[in-house]
Amino acid sequence: MSVNEHPDPGAPIVPGSPLARMLDGYAAPELPAGFAERVLAAAEARPAPLPELRRAPSRSRRWRIGQRIAIGVASFGALATAAAATGLLEQLAITVPSARTVWAGLTGSAQPAGKPVAAVAAAAPAAAAPAAALTPAAVAIEGPIDTPEELGETFRRVDEVRAGRCEERRRVIDQRIASEIERRRAAGLRVPTPEEEARLRERIERQLAAREQRADAAVAARRETMQRKVENGEALTREDLTGRKPPSPETRERFRALRDLPPGERAKAWRDLSPAERRALADALRARRAVRLPPAPAAVPQEDTPPPSE
């Protein structure tokens, strides 16, 4: 009978079958005498086994995976923090929300965007708004300014802005003097001696002080007017605060159109106006300047900047 005739060639080998008889013929020899002594001698000469690994083999695979995940998350967090701290994310235009924003998003307590910290009257100087937002106000200004407290708070904010402008003005003057001296030195021209420079600075400072004195007088006069109106229970208007009439929408639009033009085109547009229009615009501009500054007894220094608008 061939293997193909066997009902199941892979069936277990039955003892006594021809295949079993054949396999039983494969006998194994005995272990040689003295084998045990050889093994014992080899065991004695065997070096001591290595110590146990530091990592305990009983630690479960799940914990090892969790440990690697934790290390990976911590590394990623450290790298992300370092990238955010060094400004790398900002360079890559990746927005990182603040913790307050994330918390508000989670809890749903987000403040409506654009809500003003303190509602300033519409007539308040625009430049005073940032200062008011940064400095906690003792008095909240709500609606039109019609109480002495609100008026005092307005004066305080205006004074803050004016002080900042005076300081900036002096810084610009120093910068211009230094750059002019440097330009002359680079061009090989004569530079003023320290005495000449001191005299120049003294003259500029004198004119500056006179200018601020005139502005202070104008401000004091206007503030007296405003205080009287508030004491009478009247609400202040924009004209009361700024000291000038607001330009008409047409005039404002015309100024804006001219201001937005490049200098060459601005001159050409000015020339293209009719004489009546040029005269009207010049009168409006002169009126604005007259309101902004009282008549100056002396020449305005070159380094001067526009006066504070109140």
Partner: peptide
């Protein structure tokens, strides 16, 4: 694996001319 081993042995035995 054991099934394949038994098959191979039976084939070898058949090749020797002895029926399993």
């Amino acid at each position: 694996l054991l099934h394949r081993a038994r098959m191979a042995l039976r084939q070898a035995l058949a090749a020797q001319g002895d029926a399993p």
